[in-house]
Amino acid sequence: MPKIKPAKGAPYARILGVGGYRPTRVVPNEVILERIDSSDEWIRSRSGIETRHWASPEETVAAMSVEASGKAIAGAGIDASQIGAVVVSTVSHFSQTPAIATEIADRLGTNKAAAFDISAGCAGFGYGLTLAKGMVVEGSAEYVLVIGVERLSDLTDLEDRATAFLFGDGAGAVVVGPSQEPAIGPTVWGSEGDKAQTIKQTVSWDRFHTGDVSELPVDSEGNIKFPAITQEGQAVFRWAVFEMAKVAQQALDAAGISSDDLDVFIPHQANVRIIDSMVKTLKLPEHVTVARDIRTTGNTSAASIPLAMERLLATGEAKSGDTALVIGFGAGLVYAATVVTLP
């Protein structure tokens, strides 16, 4: 039997650069209050959110991704032509086919990099990072670009007081490449499909051409509503706070890192109350820097972790070489947690 020659990968993988893009338009709670019966105080106390960014028509999923990726590539000190694969995690790119990753790979000037989209909701960054690590170590790509990008404002029902204030838009990207030392720990990840109904789209796309259109939900002006994200807030809160704290602890244990060794905690930015509660349950020591980018960014799903990472590094609250615990969780329900060395 002929022998198949395997690819030659790197001993380990690491995040070499991170970049973010936040849309120009900043939306304060006052704007949200024009459409729902609520208050700035309620929104701040229940979610921590003060402002979020909403993308303009020009700030497309591809355009925001290209901006964020450009910074990540520059930070990594490589050329776009060296990128072997582009993995894009998004739930708000509204063309079913082709994948948006191919356009992004082309616009960045990669040399025909492999490119594809994944759908893993708010755990998308961790899923993409895990794929990237595998590719670098196995040898199918030397450098992998992982992008989390969302225009969740397109999937928000601004008349639904339970969700209107939560979501924001933006893109975050990292370059993953070879390393001589381990710099991305084991991923603790999984799915709980029995809870699929707790975060979902109000109506599926095919409802627009099958069944009775007159049964679709309408807004206050009688127009058929575009699908939006809806959730069982308290069920998700309970799961996030208690089950995800366990997963975060497992990721620390798997990496052999104690919370005393930890410098930074970057959980998915879903709600500051979830973040505070996780910090308490995990008993993180005072010296650990905790990302609370949610306040001015809202929940940007797959983009939230790289956006928060970029901001902590930019403000100096975290520094290159720090050990960070990252955990994403959301619709699926799905989750992914790991320990990384910051770029």
């Binding site: 106390s45 229940r46 308290q234 809160f237 309970r238 706070v241 208690f242």
Partner: peptide, 11 residues
């Protein structure tokens, strides 16, 4: 104890 703290109390 608001609605979210109540979830924590319950657990």
């Amino acid at each position: 104890v608001d609605s979210l703290s109540m979830v924590e109390v319950v657990v």
